[in-house]
Design a protein around this nucleic acid. Structure first.
Lengths: 396, 396
DNA sequence: CAACTTTCTCCACTCACAGGACAAAGAAGG
DNA sequence: CCTTCTTTGTCCTGTGAGTGGAGAAAGTTG
């Protein structure tokens, strides 16, 4: 199969492609209602999209009382690869141009094994997906990494939890391997873009997306666009001081948010509690598995274990306190909580809400939903696909 | 004098006006270098600007080895009014279209006296400036108020320190009185715009501007644009918790930043210290004036008073701690400190810098200047003039 | 079968814009 | 003083983007 070679020739074509991506199939007339162009000009641009193969016209829609319309849709053969590299696992998914997931693989993997090993894994997962017949090749790929990225170049910079990746030319390397355009971003930003495209943040222009996994990060969307900061480290809230003179953190400071609550901190606290005999539930789980994770804490809490509940509540209070500050500062229209700890569910959410609603100004919280992400582990890969499609669906 | 009636008819004219505003007089050829237009098209648009009277061609520039160029400049008769309403005083200034201050008045005034009284004051100050011959009328006015503003309508919403202003139609009322277009914004945002236009933040796209006066606020500029948040309360960092279980705050919570450091808090602490006999310097000043302000503390510190220095340092640490969190979150390219307390100068700055550089990530602080604003009390009025000129220099 | 709707296509006209030719005005050198 | 070169500004024409209307195509409804 010949891969996508064409790019939209002008802003109109780019806008049409995005309308088709976000709104699904459409007739020319419907497109005309959503774009500021005359019917004649619209027809010309649509025809050009059909000629270049970016879009296709297949079949006729049911009549609505007059002539039946042609169904214009994005070329159904286009394929994007979405890659989400977390601290402890890798997600790879194939989507069509409408960013619907056609296939999705997840594999545990330690990012600290370095870019070479991880790349091998990613490529083999991509090959496996291709082998199922979902794709014969990729028209573009988006990839998220758990650390700051110099966005224009697609290169991680000084990533604390993945030191071997510093300066590794992710974009260039992956582009070479896959033979298609690639865009790289921070994993948290991609989660935010995923929820913005297909999740709870649809049609919200300013929101925060807090991802609590092994670490803690925050995607910032301002005016519909991701804010990355001058060095690509915006949203790195894990090392904001949550507790004065609190626990020592790997970064060298004390009391960092991440040291007090995150997937890693929660597991550590749970083990500690189990060993101190505070919770039979946790102790028996520890004895059974030899270790504990957030999942165990969630299960224990669901079973009514008071210690587990306390851990969750206290963690939620810490995160909530920090989020309260960010809400006062940023005044978002929505706060999304996502990442591995979403399994902790409403206990966590309740603690966060309590802190935010109590500490932030009424004007900022008056109409502020604080909700769990609705895409779960697919948010990242959808965001990755969205990243590259935004790039490809821009004037060349 | 006939006031400005025309507005730029298209984006090109708007861009030309902004180039002339920000770069001063220019020849057609120089303008051509800064805009993506052919010489012929450029000439047409410049001619139209001359026709409408928005710009004028006066005199010829010195030759640079060939034909002498015409000096194109903004109409020198255009006048903007910049108004900056603080908690305890009002600034009013007249600028030309290049946003140069032609006249500036400052008057102490308590904003809590309400919109009617303040408006009267503002209008009389504007009249006084007009009477000096600086202006025969105004082509536009910008006004800043110390509280959240619903920006599109130009109406303050639920402002904590100026309760009487809630819902008062500032934009409409002032526009009616002055007979010209008016834009309203938060005073901190205007300070940020002022420093961006003519101060330390020139050519910086992402920065924070922390204004420490009676209260504390933070202007947020992302991608060159002010971020106002969904309800116009973005940057309201005065009630972020700085000290767990700290001092009670007027807002009902404890430990708010503003309760621990701000012009008001500093004055209170200084009086307390003087009464406790901790500082002879402060005590004698208290005895002399009956009260203390930040100016006294600054003077005492300059005179070597250890208690005053401690107050400044401790306050700087509090603010610095909060700013450190914001720097981690937002990853700005610059932090500007401004407002009434700039008189505290480098002692304050040093404390803030220490906290930020210690607590935030190296990647975010590596190349991060933290500096005092360079416009002082004119930042607000320049920002106000810039606000209205941005509005007027947009396609109609 | 007539009347009405909705969708799509075709065509002629307008206007924005580029790009080159050229005029105006001065500098530099012989 | 005259020639040559440089810079600035103007004029003119060709091109292509875009609009709006007429009308064809393909339905539904009564």
């Amino acid at each position: 199969m010949r891969r996508m070679t064409a790019r939209p020739a002008n802003g109109h074509q780019a806008k049409l492609l995005r309308l088709l991506r976000d709104g699904g199939p459409n007739s020319r007339a419907q497109l005309g209602d959503q774009i500021d162009l005359s019917r004649s000009k619209l027809a010309v641009e649509v025809d050009r999209l059909l000629e270049t193969g970016l879009a296709v016209a297949d079949g006729l829609a049911a009549s609505r009382g007059g002539r039946r319309s042609h169904n214009i849709r994005l070329n159904p053969d286009l394929r994007f690869l979405g890659v989400d590299i977390g601290a402890t696992s890798v997600d790879v998914a194939v989507t069509n141009a409408e960013l619907e997931i056609l296939g999705h693989l997840n594999q545990p993997m330690d990012v600290r094994e370095g870019p070479v090993a991880v790349f091998e894994q990613v490529l083999s997962m991509a090959a496996k997906l291709r082998a199922t017949g979902l794709a014969e090749g990729f028209d573009g790929a988006g990839i998220g990494v758990p650390g700051p990225v110099r966005f224009p170049e697609g290169v991680p910079v000084a990533p604390p939890i993945m030191p071997g990746w510093d300066g590794f030319p992710v974009r260039e390397a992956l582009s070479q391997e896959l033979g298609c355009p690639v865009m790289v971003d921070n994993d948290v930003n991609l989660m935010a873009m995923g929820e913005q495209h297909a999740g709870v943040a649809r049609s919200v222009g300013d929101f925060l997306c807090v991802k609590i996994g092994t670490g803690i990060g925050c995607g910032i969307v301002a005016g519909g666009d991701v804010h990355r900061g001058v060095t690509g480290s915006a949203g790195d809230i894990g090392h904001i001081q949550a507790v004065p003179d609190g626990r020592p953190c790997a970064c060298g400071n004390r009391g960092c948010l991440e040291a007090h609550f995150s997937g890693a901190a929660l597991a550590r606290d749970a083990v500690e509690a189990a060993q101190q005999g505070l919770s039979e539930e946790l102790a028996s789980r520890l004895a059974a598995n030899g270790t504990l994770t957030g999942v165990d804490v969630a299960a224990a809490a669901a079973a009514g274990d008071a210690t587990a509940l306390d851990l969750i509540r206290e963690g939620g209070n810490r995160v909530g306190q920090v989020i309260a500050g960010l809400v006062s500062f940023f005044n978002p229209g929505l706060v999304v909580i996502g990442g591995g700890v979403t399994g902790l569910g409403h206990n966590l959410l309740a603690a966060i809400r309590t802190q935010v609603y109590r500490q932030s100004l009424p004007l900022a919280t008056g109409n502020l939903p604080i909700v769990l992400g609705e895409l779960g582990p697919t948010a990242g890969v959808i965001g990755a696909a969205r990243l590259i499609s935004d790039h490809l669906f821009s004037p060349a």
